[in-house]
């Protein structure tokens, strides 16, 4: 298997006023295609920053970041946006569905950036909802769904454009144990059956254990 994520000598420094705050320091990372990896570490260790760099939401201060065969280091904001739309599926802790849109419309949202026809978009949104087991909730608004169901809609939104990598930031952080287990099972299914590479930031050891690889980050360094 080839590396789908390849970070070399990556550092990221933020600035609090004029004072530099290093978050990641000279970090190397390789993630194989089709892997399911969990990233753990205390708050402020740089987990989300690392995830943002891999997902093309941010650029490293130094070093190189190659993801899905593309070098993100020198990409423009527009190129990064296209990269995210094509290659990355995001799953957030707080689901972040648009409350004014139905489940089907929320899932269809990323497809508005494609050239697909309206009927094709609807078909793909329906398929994605079927994969997460919510075909019967297509017309429901987020407020009419449970937390677990909302997160499943968010997962359908993340997979609807068939991304290469799923980036999950605390996907079970807002859920009870039963719902969390359902979501983790769904992620496993996406990894094993649909061959999606999954990178998951989590504080939950039970969630991390479901991943094939657990990486620990502390003070900007992988342990």
């Amino acid at each position: 298997m080839s590396a789908i994520v390849e970070l070399k000598g990556v550092s990221k420094t933020f600035y609090r006023g004029k004072e530099p705050v290093p978050v990641l320091e000279n970090l190397d990372l390789q993630v194989e295609e089709g892997a399911y990896e969990a990233l753990m570490g205390p708050s402020g260790s740089g987990k989300s920053t690392l995830l943002n760099l891999i997902a093309g939401l941010d650029k490293p201060t130094s070093g190189t970041a190659k993801v899905a065969g593309q070098d993100l280091t020198n990409m423009s904001d527009g190129e990064l946006a296209h990269f995210r739309a094509d290659k990355i599926g995001f799953i957030f802790q707080a689901y972040n569905l648009l409350p004014v849109l139905t489940a089907a419309e929320n899932v269809e949202l990323p497809l508005l950036l494609t050239k697909l026809s309206s009927s094709d978009r609807k078909t793909r949104a329906k398929t994605a909802l079927r994969v997460v087991g919510l075909e019967d909730r297509m017309g429901h608004y987020p407020r009419q769904l449970s937390g677990g169901q909302e997160q499943r809609v968010a997962i359908a939104r993340a997979i609807v454009n068939d991304p290469t990598i799923l980036v999950c930031d605390e996907p079970t952080g807002d859920l009870d144990r039963k719902s969390a287990d359902e979501i983790l099972a769904l992620l496993e299914k996406l990894n094993k059956e649909f061959k999606k590479t999954i990178l998951m930031v989590t504080h939950d050891p039970a969630a991390a254990e479901r991943a094939g690889v657990i990486r620990k980050l502390d003070k900007g360094q992988l342990q």
Partner: peptide
């Protein structure tokens, strides 16, 4: 603000 951040993460441009 968060919602616009999510849209940008999904690939929407400024």
């Amino acid at each position: 603000t968060t919602e616009y951040g999510v849209l940008r993460a999904l690939g929407f441009e400024p």
